[in-house]
């Protein structure tokens, strides 16, 4: 069950130069009517300050659950974290008291959700909700908090911020609401932002605006950013590295540009092939056969084996580790890993 990547061998928590956030061998389970659903099964990833990690996966892959575990907003019960560590600035957050965690949440780590409308309180003006952050966390006066709210709304490029500060959430369009969410996340200048499908609910022409804004602010504040998405295209321009998840595990890691050109895991490959292209018309789409696994009954060995076109006996018995991926001649490929017994065949044909 141990999956070791380069981060797991890094020195102890007190060491400087460590990444901002480091998730190690995280497991999350849920008790359900049908048994224990293993949503996350040993996830390792890390994010440094100023770095953007994209976590790509379909529903049930565990990408959102991992983020909820980091934020400490998992419903427990039915959720449970039987194993794993989440280091934030070298401290394991899972060992902290509730009070300590609360201080980090919202203050040092902020989260942006997909549905901005339901994340904002409908009966309070956006200015009040933004200002609340400053009043509660920094003890600012009402007047200062309001001025600060307007400044923030300017930062996220909401037109006529001063005039709109007293408007209510429903008076803003979807894109503007998502900007307000970003402003709230930014308010206390956190070290890390986790964005869970931040543009999925938005229209195509607005998606690009919001994603650009997020990337720009991240550079400016030198924050760590975790982008959770199901759409590689959306994050391709802003992410530095990408982790692909399937059935609660990371199956592939790669710098974002290399992933598309040369996927090293059959799942990634199938996923990329099944996206229709804008610039040409195909006859039939490639489709990965079958369905994602039931998390209460994850197949033995590699979880992808029943759907994999190149599965062998070993895939049904041994869980593949995240193997470092190299060039054909053994040359190093920085940051690449694939949890496939046959990664060589996949990437080098």
């Amino acid at each position: 069950m141990t999956i070791i990547d380069e981060t797991a061998e890094s020195p102890g928590p007190q060491e400087t130069g460590r990444p901002l956030l480091e998730v190690r061998d995280l497991h999350v389970e849920f008790s359900t009517r049908d048994g224990v659903a293993k949503a996350v099964n040993g996830v390792n990833y890390s994010v440094a300050a100023g770095e953007t990690l994209a976590v790509l996966g379909e529903s049930g892959s565990g990408k959102s659950v991992t983020a909820q575990a980091i934020m400490g907003i998992l419903d427990m019960p039915p959720g449970r974290i039987p194993k794993g560590e989440i280091f934030f600035r070298g401290q394991d957050m899972l060992k902290m008291s509730g009070e300590e965690r609360r201080k980090i949440r919202g203050n040092r780590i902020a989260m942006i959700f997909q549905d901005a409308l339901s994340s904002l309180n409908p009966v309070l003006s956006v200015g009040y909700q933004l200002g609340e952050m400053f009043r509660v966390h920094q003890g600012m006066s009402k007047k200062d908090a309001k001025a600060k709210s307007i400044e923030l709304m300017d930062r996220v490029k909401i037109p006529a911020a001063a005039a709109r500060v007293n408007d209510y959430p429903h008076q803003f369009s979807g894109g503007m609401r998502q900007r307000i969410m970003i402003a709230m996340a930014l308010a206390l200048e956190p070290d890390l932002i986790i964005a869970d499908e931040p543009t999925t609910a938005l229209d195509v022409t607005v998606q690009a605006q919001v994603m650009d804004l997020l990337a720009e602010l991240q550079r400016e504040y030198h924050m760590g950013l975790i982008l959770i998405t199901h759409d590689l295209g959306v994050v391709a321009d802003v992410a530095d590295k990408i982790a692909v998840m399937y059935a609660g595990r990371i199956v592939e890691t790669a710098p974002v540009h290399e992933l598309y050109k040369r996927p090293a895991h059959p799942y990634t490959k199938g996923l990329l092939d099944s996206i229709p292209r804008l610039d040409q018309k195909g006859q039939e789409l490639y489709a990965i056969k079958g369905l994602p696994p039931n998390l209460t009954r994850i197949p033995s060995g590699c979880a992808f084996n029943p759907r994999c076109p190149q599965a062998q006996d070993v895939c049904r018995t041994d869980i593949p580790l995240l193997f470092p991926v190299t060039e054909r001649d053994g040359g190093e490929l920085v940051g690449r890993g694939s949890a496939c017994h046959f990664w060589k065949e996949t990437i080098h044909g």
Binding site: D34, G60, S64, L74, E197, R297
Partner: peptide, 19 residues
């Protein structure tokens, strides 16, 4: 909807073949 699973319950119900 499938691609927007964000809560635990959904993750479970949307995956795998029917019981």
């Amino acid at each position: 909807p499938g691609d927007t699973a964000s809560t635990a319950g959904v993750v479970v119900t949307d995956s795998g073949p029917a019981p």
